[in-house]
């Protein structure tokens, strides 16, 4: 059942990304291009996603556990650290360069051509080697 739900949620996520235009790299880069031809679409996408999620987080405080597992994810340690800041800086630079972040990169795999496949492949390699890099930041 959990796997079926995962399939459904992934599917809904993909359709949402597609409809919102976030699989189109021009729209994402347009959002970051505040001194050029600025495209505000991404702000609507984020707001549209955050509002239901904020309500959901409130519901999790009222019910004891998720339907199919034992507990909700705990809020992790709230301290800022080097990996969070350096990682987010790297991610932001890469995001601007191509206009892709991990979700849309996967949602556009089926129609992104060799460029999309290549991006996914290099992203996966980056993820594979991150544990080695993380050691040096500690």
């Amino acid at each position: 059942m959990k796997n079926l739900i995962a399939l459904f949620c992934g599917g809904l996520f993909g359709i949402g990304l597609f409809i919102s235009g976030m699989t189109n790299t021009t729209k994402v880069q347009g959002w970051l291009d505040i001194f050029g031809n600025w495209d505000p679409t991404l702000a609507f996408v984020l707001s549209g996603a955050i509002i239901p999620m904020a309500i959901t987080w409130n519901i999790t405080k009222r019910i004891k556990k998720p339907i199919f597992t034992d507990r909700f994810p705990k809020k992790t340690e709230q301290k800022l650290n080097k990996p969070l800041i350096i990682g987010s800086m790297m991610f932001g630079m890469g995001w601007g360069l191509s206009g892709l972040c991990p979700g849309p990169a996967m949602a556009s795999l089926s129609f992104g051509g060799w460029q999309g496949l290549m991006f996914f492949f290099t992203m996966a390699i980056g993820m594979l080697f991150t544990p080695l890099i993380a050691k040096y930041l500690k």
């Binding site: 959990k2 739900i5 995962a6 459904f8 949620c9 992934g10 809904l12 996520f13 359709i15 949402g16 990304l17 597609f18 409809i19 919102s20 235009g21 976030m22 679409t41 991404l42 702000a43 609507f44 996408v45 984020l46 707001s47 549209g48 996603a49 955050i50 509002i51 239901p52 999620m53 309500i55 959901t56 987080w57 519901i59 999790t60 556990k65 998720p66 339907i67 199919f68 597992t69 034992d70 507990r71 909700f72 994810p73």
Partner: peptide, 22 residues
């Protein structure tokens, strides 16, 4: 389309959290 796509993303994230706790 941005807002409606965004809502779908929010619903997906909500269902994943409420049902699977993830």
């Amino acid at each position: 389309s941005g807002l409606s796509g965004g809502l779908l993303i929010g619903f997906a994230a909500s269902a994943y959290l409420l049902l699977n706790g993830r």
